[in-house]
């Protein structure tokens, strides 16, 4: 039975990639708020200007979990500049689209990676 989500969304919801946390992560980003229904925490391991590992924990709906999972897949192996250029549109497109009411979940993913990279920059400034 076709549900409200694409097959890709359901695949990432049912089998989310990279769930967990990274001890002594180089950058951690937290966005959203459980009061708004979703919250995502993203952990990054950076080596030589490249994201070598990414893990997440998300409280939220199917679209929030799938967006988080897809984001980690997309940023692994990317340079910091490449990861910073990822937009919510890229995440939503990679998931074969999200319902209009759920676009904010992909925005959360974009904000999470930006927030984690800011944290990385802070920690590694000077």
């Amino acid at each position: 039975m076709a549900g409200p989500y694409s097959e890709k969304v359901m695949d990432h919801f049912m089998n989310p990639r990279n769930v967990g946390e990274i001890e002594n992560a180089d950058g951690v980003g937290e966005v959203g708020n459980p009061a708004c229904g979703d919250m995502m925490r993203l952990y990054l391991k950076v080596d030589g200007g490249k994201i070598v590992d990414a893990k997440f924990r998300t409280f939220g709906c199917g679209a929030a979990i799938a967006s988080s999972s897809m984001l980690t897949e997309m940023i692994k192996g990317k340079t910091i500049e490449e990861a910073r250029a990822i937009t919510n549109r890229h995440v939503a497109d990679a998931l074969d689209g999200l319902p209009p009411v759920k676009i904010h979940c992909s925005v959360m993913a974009e904000e999470a990676v930006k927030s984690a990279l800011e944290d990385y920059a802070r920690k590694h400034a000077g």
Binding site: G37, C61, P100, V101, K102
Partner: peptide, 24 residues
């Protein structure tokens, strides 16, 4: 996915066919 159909008062599940986030 396990064949069990229920309901929720969650905002996230309230109106998946809406126009935008404001409809949740």
């Amino acid at each position: 996915l396990r064949g069990v159909m229920a309901a929720s008062g969650s905002a996230c599940s309230s109106n998946l066919r809406g126009h935008d986030e404001e409809d949740l």
